[in-house]
Simulated scan of single mutants.
Amino acid sequence: MVDHARLKQWLAKYQNPDAAYRDLSTAMNHYKSLVPQQESYIFTDGSSKVLVNLIGTIPVNFKGVTYNIPICIWLMDTHPNNAPICYVKPTSDMNLKVSRFVDQNGKIFLPYLHDWVSSNSDLLGLIHVMIVTFGEKPPVYAKPKQSVYTYPTNPVMPVPPGYGGIGGPANLPYPPATPYSGQGNIPFYPPSNSGTGFPGYPPYPPASNFGVPMPSAGTGTIKDEHIKVSLISAIEEKLLRKMKEEVLQKQAELQTLKRTQDELKQGKIKLDAMLNKLEKEQKDLDKHLLMLKDKEQELNTACEKMENQESMDIDDAVTTTAPLYKQLLNAYAEEAALEDAIYYMGEALRCGVIDLDVFLKQVRTLSRKQFMLRGLMQKCRQKAGLAI
């Protein structure tokens, strides 16, 4: 049983503990053989950090037989923002098979890890990709037994190239990774005497004879049915490999299309918001344009009236319709004059025309008058029903 309280305690120091816990729980619910542990991981520069790893086996189907491949998935403290570090951990009765997906140290290289995106990638998807990839190229094989096989002495039919053989297909080169040092004491399930690697599990894929059945012991010759079975097995293997390649390619295309769809949806939302904003601005502009046209017409009418009238005094033109408005106008003019007086008092102090004591005394008196005038203007506007 998984101690979820302890697992949350281990993940407390992670940057996104809730997201990491959800990802781990989902993977463990689908694959009961995977269990979490907390251990020190040593990086390539020699530094170490206590991290949580997921260790156990995953079921891999190879030629119709399900094998349990031992793996170890290390979660970085920035998970899920950064991809985890994955290893194949062969037991004592297994040998590591190096390929373009697994290096000599057991470190796993997959396009899913290289293209890891926190919003679209998770541990469950990573394990699914491992199962499909290892189903085509098993990362481990059983150690050969000490018994010596005696080949028949009679002539046999040669096996065509590409139909399998000792060691399987040639491994593609892959840049070697830095060895995973200091972690040799990671615990695994104890191997059994049956050569399976784990108690009750079927044996791991043999090192040789992938896809080509051996002739029956004691016959000395290869019969027609042997050749037929060999050809059928080779064709099935080739079709299965092609089908898996096609499935992986379609999955990659679907992921690309999904990302494109998400981007298009986000772009549509942004465009709709921009269109709504532009429509609102267009309405506001039309409204302001009508107001400007009305004001322009009023100005033209006023200009025509002014041209027909005699010259007049500007001071006489500024008149009010009520005593309250006249009081408001006089208070505003006096407050503006006090504002100018305070400004020029400051300029006089800066130029050294007056002393600081005189400046402070006069500014205090003028400010008191200005405060009273502003209060009077506020009362007048309130009484007249104007905006304050």
Rank of each mutant, 00 (worst) to 15 (best):
D316V: 07
V212K: 14
I127A: 07
E39I: 06
P203G: 06
G195R: 05
K223T: 15
V60S: 06
L75V: 08
D45T: 00
D315H: 15
L7V: 14
M243Y: 13
G165E: 02
G164K: 06
A20G: 01
G200M: 03
M345Y: 14
T196W: 08
D313V: 04
M372R: 14
A207K: 15
M345V: 06
M1H: 09
R22N: 03
E310M: 01
P205G: 06
L356T: 10
K244E: 07
G267F: 04
S192M: 12
D357N: 11
M291C: 04
N16R: 08
L356I: 08
I127H: 02
L299R: 10
K270C: 02
N185Y: 05
T321N: 12
Q266S: 09
G346F: 05
L75Y: 05
G195S: 04
G135D: 05
V2N: 04
P161Y: 10
F359L: 00
G164I: 04
S194N: 15
N95S: 15
V88E: 06
F43C: 00
Y174I: 11
A27M: 03
A252Y: 01
C351Q: 12
L113A: 02
E347F: 09
Q309N: 09
E136K: 05
D122R: 04
S40M: 08
L329A: 08
P138K: 03
D262F: 01
N16I: 00
G182N: 05
F101I: 03
H30T: 09
F198H: 12
G375M: 03
K295F: 08
S25P: 01
M214F: 11
S33L: 10
H114L: 13
P323D: 05
Q255E: 14
K143H: 03
L126A: 02
K49T: 03
I58Y: 02
Q9K: 12
V156E: 11
V247K: 13
D284E: 14
S233Q: 13
K242R: 06
V156M: 15
P139L: 10
S233Y: 12
T365F: 10
F101E: 07
G200T: 08
C351N: 12
I55C: 04
K97E: 04
Q9S: 15
K293S: 06
P175I: 12
A19D: 04
Q249S: 15
V229Y: 12
A273N: 14
L349V: 08
D103W: 10
K361A: 10
S192D: 15
P111V: 03
N105S: 04
T91S: 09
D3A: 03
Q297C: 02
C86L: 11
Q378K: 15
L126V: 01
A5P: 00
Q282C: 07
G195L: 00
A322H: 15
T26G: 01
E298T: 09
S48R: 08
I73D: 05
I342W: 01
F198M: 09
Q309I: 07
R350Y: 12
E39W: 11
L289P: 01
F62Q: 03
R350P: 01
K326N: 12
Q266P: 02
T153G: 12
D18S: 14
